[in-house]
Design a protein around this nucleic acid. Structure first.
Lengths: 157, 157
DNA sequence: ACTATTTCGGCAACCGGGTTGACGATCGAC
DNA sequence: GTCGATCGTCAACCCGGTTGCCGAAATAGT
């Protein structure tokens, strides 16, 4: 019973469309909540720095990018007031990145919006279908990808 | 029964991961089949030009990017031998883009690989689950997005 | 028929997020 | 103490986009 199978090329389109939709919607709502300047890339970085903070090199490793790229991102993050850069007392070479209260606010707001969006999907799809969707996607995205989205922009090698 | 719902932030990660996986795998196999230099962006453009060809401006409109961007892409596509640029006999301003045999080969090969990949997903998920997944994704990506993936790279506004 | 407006394509400059290469400064091991 | 690894940064570049501007050609208006 192969009646009406979709074309293979539709799958990536659907995945990309759904992804874009979530991210766009997230940032639309974040902008409304007082974070209009938090670009997706910054959000990921902020998340990666986390409550405990880390150094620039750490951040680079966590995001799977070079230290140079991490330096650039943190510069912007700092300029926007989302993180503080303080010298590491234990290592004179290192710079400690810590999330500011403003940054923390953005993180909690993000988490809230993500749950909000998932709740909306749940309403449209039903709890069972949504969970099935997540499980199926997980099944097809082996652990292999540590930070699957970070190099999305540059994933055109 | 809300036992063990996933976090809201996992959904976009799963979507992005799955998308990346498909595209990466597509281009890995394309490279094996003699198209190592066909970047994802070029593939989309090639697809957009299509069997009938079009002008540079057309291409820009189809991809949802500026004519300048379309010009740049076609220049690379032409340099790689995937398209021909010929003057339009009916309009001295226009340039006609046509897919070369090499380009046509890449397109058919892409289509084949997409079906191959979908078949693999089908094997892992089962026909029913796969179709459910596609339908659910479609449900959440309203028509609103004409070319959902093209400005993925630049979707950081 | 002759303007006036639109459209076509390309040039130049820039942006955002990446890369590599080189570098001085510091740390840690021996 | 010296030497190799690591820390963060500067500079230059890549890639896919953008806007602004332009001349040349097509089309509309009268």
């Amino acid at each position: 019973m192969t009646a009406m199978d979709r074309y293979g090329y539709e799958l990536p389109l659907l995945l990309a469309g759904a992804f874009r939709r979530i991210i766009d919607e997230l940032h639309r709502r974040l902008a409304e909540q007082g974070h209009p300047d938090l670009r997706p890339a910054y959000g990921f970085a902020l998340q990666a720095i986390g409550a405990d903070g880390c150094t620039v090199s750490d951040l680079g490793r966590r995001l799977g990018v070079s230290k140079q790229a991490a330096t650039k991102t943190t510069a912007k993050l700092a300029a926007l007031g989302y993180v503080d850069r303080t010298p590491d007392p234990a290592d004179a070479r290192a710079v400690l990145l810590t999330v500011t209260p403003h940054g923390r606010a953005a993180l909690t707001e993000s988490a809230r919006i993500f749950e909000e969006l998932r709740a909306e999907w749940k309403k449209t799809l039903g709890a069972t279908r949504l969970r099935a969707l997540e499980d199926d996607l997980a099944k097809l995205t082996p652990s292999e990808t540590p930070t699957p989205l970070i190099d999305l922009p540059g994933w055109f090698h």
